[in-house]
Design a protein around this nucleic acid. Structure first.
Lengths: 221, 221
DNA sequence: CCAAAAGTGTTAGTGATACACCCATGT
DNA sequence: ACATGGGTGTATCACTAACACTTTTGG
């Protein structure tokens, strides 16, 4: 039995790209320029080429869309309902990424009318089954945020504790008690001091950085 | 741009099927009857057909291999390294299943020399990248076992607490304190009493069953 | 009365939560 | 002096972990 004895589905990767901009959790969407779902918003993605692994395909799509690499990128789930794409049988392997929006240069590519960051609170109607994918991504992203150190990839190398707390408050859309938050972070013993930021017009805050490469290793309970 | 403009990879599903037999955690493997990896042991799986979703394909493979359905089945992860299959580009969507071995009738199918339960502690060398898939499945299965109620699908409808504890001790390969274990289970408030088993030659134990349909909803801890 | 498994409480330690004020700086 | 954000401690509660003996039944 040879591989070619089977009719084969197409395989795509779709990337849910998150960022935090102006204390608001955002997701990157593209406006489709072609059918199906022309003029509708969708999660960026594309076909997996024969000479690249799934992770490489996701990485490539991410770079095409945002110009950034070396960001947090994680496979989510594969969606393969028979009729999820009106063009035919398409299986998609979804990913999510966390990017620091400062580094991103949005570029509309072929077949794309527009590219925009959308607040997670004001999403348009999405093409295909992309709402389902986005919901799933959001759930998993929050989980990862809560239980690992992935969130630090959205901060500059050196940051103050209040920035870290604001980031978490944005993602979870709720307030935390300052003392308890700091206590918890310190208890994890994952930060090292990096001096003091003297450039502010108020009491200078201590800067911190993550201890070497524990980004997604240490579980934050 | 049409779907057929792309050369397409093949897509398979592979199912890591777990069971607990004689207080030992087992996984179901098949001995391949054809190249590649002829005579090597592998995780059961097969090509996704054009008229079935991924979940349906996994379900079908599971039934073909074991004859059981209505068991716990969950998608794990998709593996798509370029050279993971010597026949060509094959992407596999892996699943894991928990089956009660009492209900299973093993059936060698075409291209399969043998089918056997292997103790997780004495695994043979596996074909393809199946070792990686199995390791991943094991990790996820244990996680699910610890934090949800999936484990109950390996027990009969009515069971005694000592059976439940023995199951957990088998899966995690360590002993738990009886009083603390029971206390924890009771605190979850997921069991209802189902009378007493009078048929034993020692003090008759209370039987319990899971409250309706909370199998994988309630998080344990 | 013996074997086998069922059943049952208390204590100490650890982590989570709730809560309010003073400090250092620039203007 | 004031505005801005930085920094700090304590008390209570809930959960976890460690630990051993008595009970019920059949043979």
């Amino acid at each position: 039995m040879k591989l070619t004895d089977y009719k084969q589905p197409s395989v795509t990767v779709d990337i849910v790209i998150f960022s935090v901009i102006d204390n608001d959790l955002k997701v990157l969407l593209i406006e489709r320029g072609v059918e199906p779902f022309k003029d509708k918003w969708a999660i960026p993605g594309g076909f997996v080429q024969m000479n690249e692994s799934l992770d490489e395909a996701a990485q490539r799509e991410l770079i095409e869309e945002t110009g950034v690499k070396d960001v947090y990128l994680e496979q989510l789930y594969s969606f393969g309902e028979i009729n999820r794409d009106p063009r035919g049988r398409v299986i998609t392997i979804s990913y999510f990424a966390l990017v620091n929006a400062d580094r991103v240069k949005l570029r509309a590519s072929t077949d794309v009318k527009d590219v925009k960051w959308f607040s997670i609170k004001k999403l348009p109607i999405l093409a295909f089954d992309h709402k389902k994918i986005l919901d799933y991504a959001l759930k998993r992203m929050k989980w990862k945020f809560e239980y690992t150190c992935v969130g630090f990839s959205l901060l500059p190398k050196k940051f103050k504790l209040s920035e870290l707390q604001r980031l978490y408050e944005t993602v979870f859309d709720k307030q935390f008690d300052k003392r308890n938050f700091i206590k918890k972070i310190h208890a994890l013993d994952i930060l090292k001091e990096e001096g003091i930021d003297e450039s502010v017009p108020y009491r200078p805050p201590t800067l911190y950085s993550l201890k070497n490469n524990i980004k997604d290793i240490v579980e934050i309970i």
